[in-house]
Design a protein around this nucleic acid. Structure first.
Length: 104
DNA sequence: AGCGTGACGAACT
DNA sequence: TAGTTCGCCACGC
């Protein structure tokens, strides 16, 4: 039984369309929290397993960041690529182009 | 020097 | 004890 906070993260993450990615800061801002790290933890725990595409969450740096999964970051990149997000040198290509904004 | 980012750490139950 | 949650501090540019 996750906390409302987790649900907020899940909601924010689920509104990200396929082929797009979001950032910890964007989610934190959307939730109105100052703790972007809490978002990382919530997503890292990934209590919503397949429903929360945690691999769609990336740091604002445009890099893949971290990933707690099978092959780690490498796996994350592969998943992103499958989603339609192209990556170059371990970074997201056209990051701002695939970056989803809750401003829409 | 200041602001922003971060898949953590420490505290509570 | 262990598990879970939420926010501050440190490093980089």
């Amino acid at each position: 039984m996750p906390t409302p906070f987790q649900e907020e993260v899940y909601k924010a993450l689920s509104m990200v369309p396929k082929g797009c990615v979001t950032t910890y800061g964007a989610i934190a801002a959307y939730l109105g929290t100052q703790a972007v790290r809490a978002v990382g933890t919530a997503v890292g725990k990934n209590p919503y397993a397949p429903k929360v595409p945690c691999h769609r969450v990336v740091p604002v740096s445009g890099k893949i960041g971290n990933y707690s999964g099978e092959g780690g970051v490498t796996r994350k990149i592969a998943l992103l690529k499958e989603e339609g997000v192209e990556t170059v040198a371990g970074k997201i290509d056209d990051f701002e182009h695939v970056l989803y904004r809750y401003d829409s």
